[in-house]
Computed example of a mutant assay.
Amino acid sequence: MKKLVLILGVALSVLACNKTETSSKDFKTAYIDTAELIEKYEKFKDEDAKFNVKSEELGRPLEAKVRAFQAEAQSFRQNAQAKGPQWAQQKGAELQQREQQLGIEQNALIQQLQQEGAVLKDTLISEVKKFIKDYGKKKGYDYIYGTGDAATVLYAKDGYDITKEVLKELNDTYKATKKDDKVATKEEEKK
């Protein structure tokens, strides 16, 4: 009896696997190694090179200020004993203020470059996603998957998109929660 149940279980599993195989043949799928795509796409390389040049250009004035500060700090160390403790204290405070100001300028430059880099990266990624979507439509793919650093679905036929249904449920749930909060607030006000 146990053998019969085991044989039926194996037979059903084989049939289920066969059904999965035939239904998966109905879909045309592919994948893209996104890490390789980014690494080898010429536009990414060119834009990265342009961004590096821009970063160096923006950083040059700050580098000159830092070199001047370092030279002045070196001079301060050499003259501190010769000119006395009062001079050293005053000059040391001035150097400390300049050092803080340079740090602020450096942080602002870093933040500016990070923001510009993020915008550039987002723009390029959007362009690539649009290209992949158009490519998928043109070639008749149902799904195009992404592998590499960010594994995601890069393209799917509109018929498989459940975004609207999920969004409707989320919005309905949110509206219901919002109404419940308003009712609770009104009841608390009455008390």
Results as ranks from 00 to 15, higher is better:
G146K: 03
Q89P: 07
G136H: 01
G117A: 13
V183Y: 06
K139M: 14
N18W: 09
I7E: 04
I110H: 11
A184E: 13
G140K: 06
C17W: 01
I162Q: 13
E116A: 15
A82N: 15
E21M: 01
D158C: 03
Q70T: 10
D142L: 00
G59Y: 00
Q97A: 06
K190Y: 04
Y155Q: 08
Q70F: 02
R60M: 10
E189F: 11
I162E: 09
E42Y: 11
G146A: 08
K83C: 09
E57K: 08
K133M: 04
W87D: 02
N107H: 10
G84W: 04
Y174F: 12
V53I: 13
L113H: 00
E189H: 11
A80S: 05
S23Q: 15
T173I: 05
A73R: 01
L167Q: 12
E72A: 10
K186Q: 13
K45R: 15
Y160V: 04
R67F: 02
I32S: 01
K157T: 05
L12N: 03
G103S: 11
Q101H: 11
S13W: 02
A150R: 15
A71Q: 09
S55M: 12
V53W: 06
N52V: 12
F76K: 00
A108C: 07
A151F: 00
G148F: 05
D142R: 01
A64K: 13
T147G: 06
Q101S: 14
W87S: 02
Q89Y: 07
E56Q: 12
E99W: 05
D48Q: 11
F131H: 03
A80D: 01
V14A: 03
A80N: 03
V10A: 09
S24Q: 10
A49R: 03
D48M: 09
K164S: 04
Q78A: 13
A93E: 13
A88N: 09
I104W: 09
D149S: 12
E169A: 09
Q96S: 14
E187G: 01
A16E: 11
G148R: 08
Y174H: 10
D122T: 10
A108W: 02
D46S: 15
K137S: 10
D26A: 14
V153P: 05
E189V: 12
L12V: 00
N52H: 14
K54T: 04
A184Q: 15
D26Y: 08
K138L: 01
E42I: 09
V53P: 00
A156C: 12
A118K: 15
D26M: 13
Q90Y: 10
R67Q: 14
A150E: 13
S13M: 07
G103K: 04
A184P: 13
I144F: 03
A82T: 15
F27R: 11
K191F: 08
K43T: 12
Y145R: 04
D158G: 09
I132P: 03
L37S: 00
L8D: 05
E57G: 10
I110K: 13
Y145T: 02
V14M: 04
E187R: 06
T152A: 14
